[in-house]
């Protein structure tokens, strides 16, 4: 593995076998994600972009090819934020955020301190003892993000983290993620999304994927300076860039 790459995929494919037929979900895909890079993956529904993410997380193995991921203590040095159903209703906000640290057997006082500090960064300080059932969808995803970040993984994987939220809230959480990530010292992020705006605002690089079986159609550097501000959305350059992405993707979505 070349140093400086958090993830390397070489001719990676994934086929899902079901009783009726085999589904070629992904690939072959070649991909490098550099350390500290924020990569967004966009593509039509069912193109295997979530599968790619789950392979990086070690939840799914490739059917062919090879995927190399930076490890710590023998497992991918990555944490995942899921779209929904991932924070645990039986744990308080604090216990949810602390879970990764508890599992790694971090000493309780230190784990509490780290969890509280991530809760503060994600605006959850007033809800530490609340159970998720009493939280709004936006709050729950903040918990999911804080929980993923608390064990300090080298790689953050996000699978359409804001897709279940309403449009205004989605924008608020995008802005917060932008701020947290830029303040956090440039952790590696792979974010799967449907939203070109989200990808253009957050990403350093955008990978556009084809219909199933998903392949890389384009690998697009995002031309905006860091640190970025949410106001970037309203600039003509941003709008033009989003249009350009849409051109790349439109035909794929139409034929999906």
């Amino acid at each position: 593995m070349r140093s400086g790459n958090a993830v390397e995929a070489r001719a990676v494919e994934r086929v899902f076998h079901s009783r009726k037929r085999d589904i070629h979900a992904l690939g072959p895909v070649d991909l490098d994600v550099r350390d500290g890079e924020f990569v967004c993956v966009v593509g039509p529904s069912g193109c295997g972009k979530s599968t790619l993410l789950r392979m990086i997380a070690g939840l799914v193995t490739p059917s062919a090819g090879e995927l190399r991921v930076r490890v710590k203590d023998g497992r991918p040095d990555a944490a995942m934020v899921f779209q929904d159903y991932s924070i645990f209703p039986w744990k308080t906000v604090l216990a949810n955020i602390r879970l990764g640290l508890d599992l790694a057997k971090v000493e309780r006082r230190e784990a509490d301190r780290l969890a509280r500090s991530w809760a503060a960064k994600t605006g959850l300080s007033d809800f530490l003892d609340a159970y998720p059932a009493s939280l709004s969808g936006g709050m729950r995803q903040r918990v999911a993000i804080a929980r993923a970040l608390a064990p300090n993984p080298q790689i953050l994987l996000m699978d359409e983290p804001f897709a279940a939220l309403d449009a205004q809230l989605r924008q608020v959480l995008q802005d917060e993620l932008l701020e947290v990530w830029q303040a956090d010292g440039r952790r590696t992020v792979v974010l799967v999304t449907h939203s070109l705006e989200e990808a253009a605002l957050l990403g350093d690089r955008i990978l556009v994927m084809s219909n199933r079986p998903g392949r890389l159609l384009a690998d697009q550097e995002v031309p905006f300076e860091r640190p970025r501000r949410p106001e970037l959305r309203a600039t003509p350059e941003f709008v033009a860039f989003r249009e350009q992405l849409w051109h790349l993707l439109r035909d794929e979505v139409r034929s999906a």
Binding site: G58, F82, Y85, F88, K91, L99, P151
Partner: peptide, 27 residues
């Protein structure tokens, strides 16, 4: 049990017994 509960546990590094205690039994 939703599959994503177990996947969330695995992605946070839960071993089989930890998953039992923190995820399966409470769920």
């Amino acid at each position: 049990m939703p599959e994503s509960y177990r996947e969330a546990g695995r992605s946070l590094g839960a071993g089989p017994w930890q998953a039992m205690r923190h995820i399966v039994i409470p769920a």
